[in-house]
Design a protein around this nucleic acid. Structure first.
Lengths: 229, 229
DNA sequence: GAGGAGGTGAGCCACTCGGCTCACCACTAA
DNA sequence: TTAGTGGTGAGCCGAGTGGCTCACCTCCTC
């Protein structure tokens, strides 16, 4: 073996160890296959549940061989975890908190955002499957809680705290207040859907539910000036 | 064949057609086996989910042969349905509504009853499996909703309507008010448990959640006299 | 044009599943 | 004593499961 060959091999080894670049093309193809797998798997999992979805069907729906599927996701559980995690990836940009000063308007804004989130297609199905599989995959439930529920809970909490500081609201416990607000809404627009497949309140009913929740919050936490408007 | 025999057979035939009496003994044995099956199946279903529980394991846990299981429940789905339906059978006697006149005390009573129900062992697991299987067995979800949620919702609604009629509360829409009250409570004490396996607020936190929900209801729907006490 | 990546198709493995059947047993009631 | 019930154990069936492997192909990149 000549010196130049040795050098060549050493350089390649270093490069591989550092970046493991399998060339632009191969990475692109792999990424395409991967997204196609994730998309198909998401659809099937939400449709048929975890046990009800076989890897064979996922591979078929994704237009991919079973061997490829196993190269990308070593196990069914890993695929499931990737699905749930990536579902929440979309929501990168966080909407800004409403300005303090108008408690009614601020709560209405947040409330409408919340119902819009809950009304997203697939949201109910996602909750359904995650709830079902929490005993087997506890981290999945924590992920869903952290990415799906906490952001809204936190935005309400921080907003209420800001209103409290501004004197536009009067409350000791912003956490409890936030829980109450979101609970009043979701107990009407979302949770019944977990048991009743056909629970689909029309827009006016949903709007009313948010408005009524806001009114109740105003009655409890509003300062005199904010009660009326 | 003598006349008496003919008569005898005819009478037996009529009796069988009317009541299908397989003798006291056999009925008792069958009932025992049945309850033992239902108990074992309930435990296993709540533990491992619908797909995760095999009929073989149920039969084994019940101390019953597979053949017997099939004689009592023609199909796995039928067994599952029986489980869920019988889970709610216990709650025969309905607790009486609080007397109108003290909105705070009445809501507190109902709120504490509600958290006691939600804290029952197996309640979370039951909701979990029912929610998971609603797409496959919609009637199960409706049963759960009708037997598990409606009674409390109705009791709050009727109680609030009574308070309204008595002048101790002021509200147009008792349904919305009831949804709000129960939503404020369950959004803290129950629904997080669907995603977080270890969500188990201590008694003081639960009590506080109910109290705070009552205070919010009083602020919104109480009449001046009831605000303070 | 050679190297090497990722994808492919087929197939193996050991298992489990729900559903169903049947000959036989234990036991009570008449 | 006998008829008839419900329970029993064993076993068969076809289908499907997740996991895994391997030789082979395709196609870009250097």
């Amino acid at each position: 073996m000549e010196v130049s060959q040795v050098t060549h091999l050493a350089v390649r080894g270093i490069l591989e160890g550092m970046t493991a670049q399998p060339s632009e093309y191969h990475r692109r193809v792999a990424a395409q296959k991967r997204t196609s797998i994730v998309e198909a798997a998401t659809r099937l999992f939400l449709d048929s549940g975890y046990d009800g979805t076989s890897l064979a069907r996922i591979a078929e729906a994704a237009g991919v061989s079973r061997a490829t599927l196993f190269k990308q996701f070593t196990t069914k559980a890993a695929l499931f975890e990737a699905i749930v995690t990536e579902y929440w990836k979309v929501d990168d940009e966080e909407a800004p908190l409403p300005e303090p000063g108008n408690l009614r308007a601020g709560l209405e804004t947040i409330g409408r955002r919340y119902v819009a989130l809950l009304a997203q297609p697939g949201m109910a199905a996602l909750f359904r499957i995650v709830i079902a599989e929490v005993p087997r995959f506890p981290e999945i439930g924590e992920t869903q809680f952290r990415l799906g529920k906490m952001p809204y809970f936190e935005s309400v909490r921080r907003y209420l705290a800001a209103e409290n500081a501004a004197g536009t609201a009067r409350l000791d416990d912003a956490e409890t207040a936030a829980t109450q607000f979101l609970g009043m809404i979701s107990n009407f627009v979302f949770w019944p859907r977990m048991l009743l497949a056909r629970w689909e309140p029309d827009d006016s009913a949903v709007t009313n539910a948010v408005d009524q929740a806001v009114l109740t919050m105003l009655a409890r936490y509003g300062t005199p000036g904010t009660h009326g408007a």
